[in-house]
Amino acid sequence: MTDAAAPALRRRPWLRTARAAPATAAPVSRDRLSRRASLLLVSPALLLLGWAFFLPVAALLFRSVSEPTWTLAHYARLIDEPLYLRIILRTLWISAGVTVLALVLGYPIALWIARARAGVAAFVTLCVLIPLWTSVLVRSYGWILLLQRNGIVNSWLKEWGFIDRSLALLYSETTVLVAMSHVLLPFMILPLVSSLKNISPDLGKAALNLGASPWRGFVHVTLPLSLPGIFAGCLMVFVLSLGFYITPALLGGPRTLMIATLISQQATEMLNWPFAGAISFVLLALSLAITFAFRKLLGVERAAAHA
């Protein structure tokens, strides 16, 4: 384990198994050969990542500061023009909204999966996974079918007499928010389930036995013990939301432009690659910053919760 992780573990030893396990394997002499072998085994993936991901990203970033000459003009433009700043802020707030919505919708389902009998749990897990195996494009078109002017929702509402004229349900921030939450929900539920399953059912019984109502038992025992899952799920959903492309592009329309759509526009329609690179760098920096912030938060959350 690293030196930086050590004090954190002293404060929160219950995280030990989850975090320190990979680091505890002691190096043995025959490990040397297997390490070389394992390096050989991962090298195709590393090469692919290097050539197909890191290199193009680096090239894009390089172009953002080097074209037409060495300049920070593209970044200045991003900050100076209120339109772009608004898109960045909108992306942040929609991502935050999607994260909260997915957490609120996903936690009960995760709890259900973790507590249900094996057969029921397997079925509900399948229900969570099947959408994940379905293309995002298909799921987004599904929302269009539901919400468009002559879509299912509008025609039902009209049939039941709630409305006379079709509502404009598509192309709003709310639509993007709801649809993205739906698409990203499995990424919230799965880490939550795994952390909830790690909590012994005896702990819930112990809380009841010691006088906690089911609700207080949840608040004081289950919820704090599931925090690692909450953080993992929120991080995953938030970071995926930041760069989400298909759903906002299809359901958001031009008035709810998000960063990823903006990058695509600049690169493929405007052919302004340096500016697309600058926006990409901002997106990358945001994602990394948020990831580190979450990790930090996971580190201190405990001390605050039970001080």
Binding site: D202, K205, A206, A207, N209, P224, L225, R302
Partner: peptide
């Protein structure tokens, strides 16, 4: 109640 596996709250 004292549980078989103690059931102490780990946090």
């Amino acid at each position: 109640m004292v549980f078989q596996k103690y059931a102490l709250f780990p946090h």
